[in-house]
Design a protein around this nucleic acid. Sequence first.
DNA 1: TCAAAAGTGTTATCCTTACACCCATGT
DNA 2: ACATGGGTGTAAGGATAACACTTTTGA
Lengths: 331, 331
Amino acid sequence: MSEAAGGIEIGLNAAIVAMVDEEPAVLTVGRDAGVDLADALPFGPFDPVRHRTLELGLRAWVEAQTALRLGHVEQLYTFGDRGRHARADDADPHVVSVGYLALTRLVDGAEGPTGRALAATGGGFRPWYDYFPWEDWRRGRPAILDEAILPAMRAWRAEDPEHRGLGRALGRAERLRLHFGEDGAPWDEEKVLERYETLYEAGLIAEASRDGRVCARAAAAPLGRAMRFDHRRILATAISRLRAKLKYRPVVFELMGESFTLTELQKTVEAISGRHLHKQNFRRLVENAALVEATGETSLVTGGRPASLYRFRREVLAERPAPGLRLGSRG
Amino acid sequence: MSEAAGGIEIGLNAAIVAMVDEEPAVLTVGRDAGVDLADALPFGPFDPVRHRTLELGLRAWVEAQTALRLGHVEQLYTFGDRGRHARADDADPHVVSVGYLALTRLVDGAEGPTGRALAATGGGFRPWYDYFPWEDWRRGRPAILDEAILPAMRAWRAEDPEHRGLGRALGRAERLRLHFGEDGAPWDEEKVLERYETLYEAGLIAEASRDGRVCARAAAAPLGRAMRFDHRRILATAISRLRAKLKYRPVVFELMGESFTLTELQKTVEAISGRHLHKQNFRRLVENAALVEATGETSLVTGGRPASLYRFRREVLAERPAPGLRLGSRG
DNA sequence: TCAAAAGTGTTATCCTTACACCCATGT
DNA sequence: ACATGGGTGTAAGGATAACACTTTTGA
């Protein structure tokens, strides 16, 4: 019980999310080291001598490197996987990495903190649906599902060795039903991680080849943009969490400006949850959740009738135990 | 970006939960080292050379040391706090600890794996409400709330330096309302961690004295049994998570035997969620969630009319996207 | 005058809550 | 017979889902 396993490093990985033109986007760093062609999430080592907590450590290096002001910051998961994190060779020091989700607001287009952020990291904000095109149902069912994913997944299901989950794990058919909505089952937008992991196992994700899997299909027509190490998995975790949290915590407002129209708010929620919402119901929802209040001003940039501007009512935090946008199945 | 912070150790802490006579109990290890008088959660170092993932590492040492078979295992949170984990002196190596929740079933009273588990660790399973007496509302509002906690917390609220949360943090009055149900607000049984942290901040938790806080009140009449380091915080996290998860995943069954009566199931759910449920509504809930099926047998040990025995329907896992006991506000 | 987007009112349906009553066994 | 716990039916209320329609601007 006293054998210490020394030589471990703690890495902090952050999925830093902001809205860029109605699109949820994530900060990626450039391929500065030239090690790999894929995008990576910003990464920083945790130094327990300088920082009292993991979150403070994260905030410190993010703010130092990117000049972004982080709003909501949330720990996602700690990964200790060998073979996923590091490349196959075992010589490098072991890195246990703690994944974080952070929300921020971009002040301006190209100037301001944001511009400097991009310059400093050599990367930039990129729409998260570039990495997960099958998660964007805002304009209906994504074509990639029926054209590429489901045919391949049905083949994978057919070659199922035992047609049933062993022990408590789900079998392939069940996972296809529950996570991908096969056989008329509903699509659950929160199951982003489950879908990613199932695709990974089925060998449809380019990253899986590093894990010693055959990726014939992945090589032929890659599903979404790849990322370094297991960063795409961290991003999938981040999206899952954000989509879930939206419903019981007012996190959207961390991504919005000071004032906004109800349509802008709806577009943001739609962008995050990846689905279309009914205008009328969404408005009533916001209304009787008392999440916002009118500023009295109107916005004329909409193209039609001017829209009232609203601001977030901070008071709800003190009023309601779980303030959020409890979108039903239709919103 | 390349400064490595070496010399860190990864510790794995598990809140291993099982039912002991209608009480949720947690495995604690004895004060073998004699270092501290308080109970501790079982702890093991993570050795990345021997174990591929954190969870496998955890399962390995738990099974080696306790002979328990773990069912559901779930990562809770990773703590890097200095000053909470380690004692104040900075000389010892930094430990980042990953908290886990694990559910298990005790096969027998004193023999079998359980007995050996107790013997091997020098500790045993102890009701979790020993550590959190204010969380047990099964027999109505706990007396300790009105007798000790709320008076002290009102005093703490009165000496609030700024009467309002600074920035996005909640003020003392709001926290008392939302987390402790002051001023007619409802009690939310999932806010176990929030309550513990508020009590900690208010100086009512014995453990806080190690963090350099004055604990006049804590010394006079300690609230609940203390634990070593920040283990009670990990346990609070575990209870919060389990209470929440109960509602959308069939985790209760990890704590039940193969077959059980509906009343036994209800008692277990009540024990975990810490509140009383209406019999009729609970039964209907279980019924149309299709979570169980009758075995055909009956139990005669109830004292009244024999009760039908049921077993968990594993098939729901494949049928429903979120099978659980969505207890409403009354159950 | 028309397109585009904002904003309002109303109804059917389901799920939650709550209540009241009957059944089978041991003592 | 009666106490004890097991088991069932049904009505009221509130939240959700879905519908169609009016209003105000710019071009």
